[in-house]
Simulated assay, not measured.
Amino acid sequence: MHENFQPCVYMLASGKCGTLYIGVTSDLVKRLHQHRTNALPGFTARYSVHHLVWYELHATMEQAILREKRLKRWNRDWKLNLVERSNPEWVDLALGLGFEPVATRLPMTGS
């Protein structure tokens, strides 16, 4: 097992009450770096879902995976309430883990 092994379920958002993404990892800092730099093509890169708004540590990957699967079945309101209970201002928790703020993508305007 490598030294940063810490099973974790996390939720990213594009902004307050924005597009949500739920994932699971054994190395949250490494995974956040991948999401924030768009190193992995996919949903979070396509929809600019880069703000860490909630996470939960687990003792085993099996527990984390079960929790992730449960959360993914939840309706949107339940997910929003989960974030709001522990992070009512929708602060980007990645900043507390040493990350720089992510620029929020502004809507395109015609000229």
Rank of each mutant, 00 (worst) to 15 (best):
residue 8 C to N: 12
residue 17 C to P: 03
residue 3 E to D: 13
residue 90 W to H: 05
residue 2 H to E: 09
residue 1 M to Y: 08
residue 33 H to W: 13
residue 35 H to D: 06
residue 71 L to R: 00
residue 1 M to P: 12
residue 80 L to Y: 13
residue 49 V to N: 08
residue 76 R to D: 08
residue 48 S to G: 09
residue 23 G to R: 05
residue 99 F to S: 12
residue 82 L to W: 04
residue 25 T to S: 13
residue 79 K to G: 01
residue 56 E to Y: 05
residue 83 V to L: 05
residue 47 Y to D: 11
residue 46 R to F: 07
residue 98 G to T: 11
residue 95 L to E: 06
residue 50 H to S: 11
residue 85 R to T: 08
residue 102 V to K: 10
residue 87 N to L: 11
residue 68 E to V: 03
residue 37 T to G: 13
residue 97 L to T: 12
residue 81 N to L: 04
residue 47 Y to N: 14
residue 36 R to D: 05
residue 12 L to T: 03
residue 34 Q to K: 14
residue 57 L to I: 11
residue 79 K to I: 04
residue 68 E to G: 04
residue 54 W to Q: 01
residue 81 N to V: 03
residue 37 T to R: 12
residue 104 T to I: 14
residue 11 M to A: 02
residue 81 N to C: 08
residue 61 M to D: 13
residue 41 P to V: 13
residue 21 Y to A: 02
residue 59 A to V: 08
residue 38 N to S: 15
residue 26 S to N: 15
residue 22 I to P: 01
residue 16 K to L: 07
residue 96 G to Y: 09
residue 43 F to C: 09
residue 69 K to N: 09
residue 15 G to V: 02
residue 53 V to Q: 03
residue 55 Y to M: 07
residue 87 N to E: 07
residue 63 Q to W: 05
residue 23 G to M: 06
residue 30 K to Q: 15
residue 92 D to L: 10
residue 52 L to H: 02
residue 47 Y to P: 01
residue 31 R to L: 01
residue 43 F to M: 06
residue 73 R to E: 14
residue 93 L to R: 01
residue 102 V to W: 10
residue 40 L to A: 12
residue 54 W to A: 06
residue 57 L to M: 01
